[in-house]
Amino acid sequence: MMYRSLFPRDVLAELNRLQREMQQAFHLSPSIRGIARGGFPAMNVGGTPQSVDIFAFAPGIDPATLDVQIEKGVLTVAGERKRDLPGEEATVHIDERFDGRFRRVVTLPDDVDANAVDAKYRDGVLRISIGRKQSAQPRRITIQ
């Protein structure tokens, strides 16, 4: 079908595949959990000297159903996004949004304190802030 190629998502899927192949070609020692780019929820990870912040872009989810766990330095975010079922007479023209169960795993740095975790869900973004251990904080040493 000719018109199919006009939809940008097909071009994007191709680009994604290309990007994946490029990453695999250049990333000689990828993480054992893979690159996982393009998974749901998309994740950004950032850090400050006091904390590690993980942003999971998971829109349209009841925060009570989200399962966030930290075990042995590994953070797991799991849950399910249910789909609003269209009526019987309805026609689906575009279907790009994720639905179903999801699970993503992030390895945390060694210096995080698993007891100092704060998780918030706002505007469809789950933000998990994990404090770093006191002993790992940079300290200025005074010279006598």
């Binding site: 829109p59 309805a90 575009i94 949004r97 505007d123 469809g124």
Partner: peptide, 24 residues
């Protein structure tokens, strides 16, 4: 970014869902 969407049509009209996480 190009947000993912679902577009559903029924007798009354079209319903569009778009994922825009992080947007207040």
């Amino acid at each position: 970014l190009l947000p993912p969407v679902d577009v559903v049509e029924d007798a009354s009209g079209i319903t569009l869902y778009a994922d825009l996480p992080g947007v207040p």
